[in-house]
Write a protein that binds this DNA or RNA. Structure first.
Lengths: 105, 105
DNA sequence: TGAAAGTATGTCGCATTTGACATACAATAG
DNA sequence: CTATTGTATGTCAAATGCGACATACTTTCA
């Protein structure tokens, strides 16, 4: 619910997996944020592997560079929808997605 | 892009996994819709397993019965965001999610 | 050093998604 | 049959997410 909290959490240097109830976040909120951060990190990684700039990815998905930057930053203004769609644009499969979400897979 | 197409696709009896490019859907669009349908189906299943009504789930996630009905129906007006959040409300873990997305896991 | 390419951040108007409400339909029991 | 409980469908105002733009910061390489 509280956007400011999320902003704070996502700022500067939270290792993926460490976002937890240290502010008054419900487990679902934590899980949701963690999920977004995981996917965001993977997006950046994949984009770079494919030697694409944010501008190029933005064009591929008919969006803008600034949006891509926000997606990768895990900005609270970005939905899971857009995050997942951008991954799909990079050719990520459902199986790939599953592995991102639960590496133990 | 085309909402009507998606409506059609989601109507009556598409086995999960069978939504494909048989209308002019791009691979990403197909994948996105398939993903939503998979999660929607799982949501209904889990809700029932926990002996919850749509009204009860709606209260848990601070939404309304009609929204829950739409989520489970894979209504195009429902975002992945809301879908995933509703699953998290039911206590679904990242690992659970991964298994839903890619059963082979 | 400095120009160029890439990325980050803030804002805005428009579009989509939301919860809520009304109401219709479905299934079950009494 | 007919209440009751559960689900589906349509609509709407308000909230949220969106692409786009402007602009600042960062990195790279001559």
């Amino acid at each position: 619910m509280d956007k400011e909290k999320r902003q704070k959490l996502e700022e500067n240097g939270w290792a993926v997996g460490s976002v937890d109830e240290f502010l008054e976040l419900t487990p679902e909120e934590s899980a949701y944020i963690e999920l977004k951060l995981t996917l965001a990190t993977n997006l950046r990684q994949r984009r770079r592997e494919q030697h694409l700039t944010q501008v190029e990815l933005a064009n591929l998905m008919h969006s803008s560079q600034s949006r891509v930057a926000k997606i990768e930053a895990g900005d609270p203004s970005v939905s899971l929808d857009l995050l997942v769609r951008s991954l799909l644009t990079l050719g990520v499969t459902q199986s790939d997605l599953a592995h991102m979400i639960s590496p133990a897979v």
